[in-house]
C-alpha cells in the first residue's frame, strides 16, 4: 500500500516536471512555505549581524525595562540573584571560573539573540525588538563594553567587540 503510493507520486512528479528534471528521490511530502510565513519563527542572528531586525534602543531605556522585567531574577543592576549575574565577572583564572558576558562571551550579537529567544523566563518572546535592543544596550553599558549613550541597532551592535573574542580554540577544525 505504502510502496504503491510512493511509486504513483514519483511517476506523477516525473510526468509534471518531464524527463531530465532533477527530482530528488523520496516521497516529496514537505509542503513548500514562503519565507514570509517563516518570519515569525525566524529569529536566528549571526555574529556578523545577519538577521538583526529594524529598531534600536539605549542603555537608559534598557535600565527601566531591566528593573521591571529582569531584575527580580538577575538582581539589581544585573549583579545576580536567583539567576546568573549579567554584569561583571572575575578573571578566567581557573578551569571552573564562572563565565560571564564581560569575561567570556565572544560576540555581542549573542546577547541580543538569547534575550530575544529566551527571556523573560516566564514570558519568552514577549519583548519587542526595541526592548531587546535597549536591554542589550543596558547590559553592554553596565559591563563598560559600550558608552552610556550608545544606541544599539542592527548597524552598531555587531561592531561591539567583546573582550574575549579571540579567547577560543576550535577543538576539531576537521569536523567543520
Amino acid at each position: 500500500m505504502f510502496t504503491r503510493r510512493v511509486s504513483i507520486s514519483a511517476a506523477a512528479l516525473a510526468f509534471v516536471f518531464g524527463a531530465g528534471t532533477a527530482v530528488a528521490e523520496g516521497p516529496n511530502l514537505g509542503r513548500p512555505i514562503d519565507p514570509a510565513d517563516i518570519a515569525p519563527w525566524d529569529i536566528s542572528i549571526l555574529p556578523d549581524g545577519t538577521g538583526l531586525p529594524p529598531g534600536g534602543g539605549t542603555p537608559a531605556q534598557g535600565e527601566r525595562i531591566f528593573a521591571q522585567k529582569c531584575g527580580m531574577c538577575h538582581g539589581e543592576k544585573g549583579k545576580g540573584g536567583v539567576a546568573a549575574p549579567v554584569v561583571g565577572g572575575g578573571p578566567i583564572d581557573r578551569i571552573e571560573a564562572p563565565k560571564t558576558i564581560a569575561n567570556f562571551w565572544g560576540y555581542s550579537t549573542t546577547v541580543f539573540d538569547f534575550i530575544r529567544r529566551a527571556m523573560p523566563w516566564q514570558q519568552p518572546r514577549s519583548l519587542t525588538d526595541n526592548e531587546v535592543y535597549a536591554l542589550t544596550a543596558y547590559i553592554l553599558a553596565e559591563n563598560k563594553l559600550i558608552g552610556q549613550n550608545d544606541s544599539m541597532n542592527a548597524e552598531t551592535l555587531p561592531k561591539v567587540r567583546m573582550p574575549n573574542r579571540d579567547g577560543f580554540i576550535i577543538r576539531f577544525p576537521d569536523k567543520i
Binding site: 578573571p91 583564572d93 581557573r94 565572544g106 549573542t110 577560543f168 580554540i169 576550535i170 577543538r171
Partner: peptide
C-alpha cells in the same frame, strides 16, 4: 559560545568540541 565552551588551564577555551 558560553555553556558548552570549555575553559582550559591557560585561560583559553575550546569551542565546537562536538
Amino acid at each position: 559560545t558560553r555553556t558548552y565552551s570549555q575553559i582550559l588551564p591557560n585561560g583559553k577555551a575550546f569551542r565546537f568540541y562536538f
